[in-house]
């Protein structure tokens, strides 16, 4: 249609017939479309390159490495193998060369999941009241509270984790204080325990819970809370039937932002767990370091990723399902 419109006003010269003008117009339009196409590619290129180089390429490298053999001093031998995945679940018996089921890695994965779920739960339980408090302050005050929440980010995670170490170690601030007050006689061992790891994770990731919750609660229409009170809902009922359902997007976002990085945490469990209570992050790092088994590390990373994706799938499905049925 468009091509005939373009051709119509063009005066028909003696030599080229009407058919050739038509094709000339078509060619002109084709050129324009090509140009537009090129421009689209140029404009989307930065995004595509970023996703490609920083997202897809590393993933492909990890996938490839996980199907290769480990070189004895780190690196990989370029011959295909599923050894890495097999050794995730089985160990070769030193004497018989038989493959024996070994749950060591699975246990570390399971522990990491428990720690991550626990951290998420504690963050939610303490983060929700915090975010609610912030969201109900006068608008001018709120930004100051957000600032206070984000201040810990200004210093390095390693430094903050070491600070926790100094607070909770046997001769640390907390134990000295409790002994000084006469609450306890002997220092309580807190460092290098599961407690220390979860405490560290909770401290590191609390802002990731508070900020999305705050964003959700700040948008909450408090006239709905009033309507709830008006319709005979007491305070707890208003909380569970109105405030929490309406801040569900923030709860989902906060839980994901805490759970996923907590599951793969590396520095915190390394320092506060003393290397005795490994989490997945440390395990994977070990394969690339002292373990000198890059394929196994790559396979472990991919297994973690798959587990997170599966968990995410069920979590999102469960939480949106609830919304549907009110």
């Amino acid at each position: 249609m468009a091509s005939t419109d373009v051709a119509a006003p063009a005066p028909a010269p003696a030599t080229p017939g009407p058919a050739s003008t038509l094709s000339a117009a078509q060619a002109a339009q084709q050129r324009m479309e090509d140009k537009a196409q090129v421009r689209r590619w140029i404009l989307t290129a930065p995004a595509l390159i970023t996703v490609g180089i920083f997202g897809i390429l590393p993933l492909i490298i990890i996938i490839i490495y996980s199907f290769l053999k480990a070189a004895p001093y780190g690196g990989v031998v370029w011959s295909p193998s599923v050894e890495a995945y097999v050794s995730f679940l089985f160990q070769q018996d030193i004497f018989t060369d038989e493959l024996v089921f070994s749950p060591d890695f699975l246990q570390i994965y399971l522990r990491s999941f428990v720690f991550a779920v626990g951290t998420t739960a504690i963050c939610l339980l303490l983060g929700f009241p915090t975010a609610y408090f912030m969201a109900t302050r006068p608008p001018k005050q709120r930004n100051w509270w957000v600032l206070l929440i984000t201040i810990p980010f200004w210093s390095n995670l390693l430094v903050r984790t070491l600070a926790i170490m100094f607070i909770i170690r046997d001769e640390g601030l907390l134990n000295n204080l409790l002994i000084g007050l006469g609450v306890i006689q002997q220092p309580i061992t807190m460092l290098y325990t599961d407690f220390a790891i979860v405490l560290g994770l909770f401290y590191s990731f609390l802002p990731f819970m508070v900020l999305p919750l705050y964003a959700s609660l700040e948008k909450l229409d408090f006239r709905l809370v009033e309507a709830g009170y008006d319709l005979y809902a007491s305070r707890p009922k208003v909380l569970f039937r109105i405030v929490i359902p309406l801040s569900r997007p923030g709860i989902i976002a906060g839980c994901l932002l805490v759970f996923i990085p907590a599951l793969g945490a590396y520095v915190t469990p390394l320092i506060l767990g003393g290397g005795r209570h490994l989490m997945i992050g440390d395990l994977i790092a070990q394969q690339f370091g002292s373990g000198r088994n890059w394929p196994l590390g790559a396979a472990q990373a991919l297994i973690l990723m798959s587990a997170v994706l599966v968990a995410l799938f069920f979590y999102v499905r469960a939480s949106t399902g609830k919304v549907k049925h009110g």
Binding site: L224, E226, Y229
Partner: peptide, 24 residues
């Protein structure tokens, strides 16, 4: 408190609960 008074309000903004259906 409001939830102990047999008084109901129709709000200027209606303040209907967006996560519930009409019947709910």
């Amino acid at each position: 408190p409001p939830y102990k008074r047999m008084v109901n309000t129709v709000f200027q903004s209606y303040a209907l609960f967006p996560h519930l259906t009409v019947a709910e």
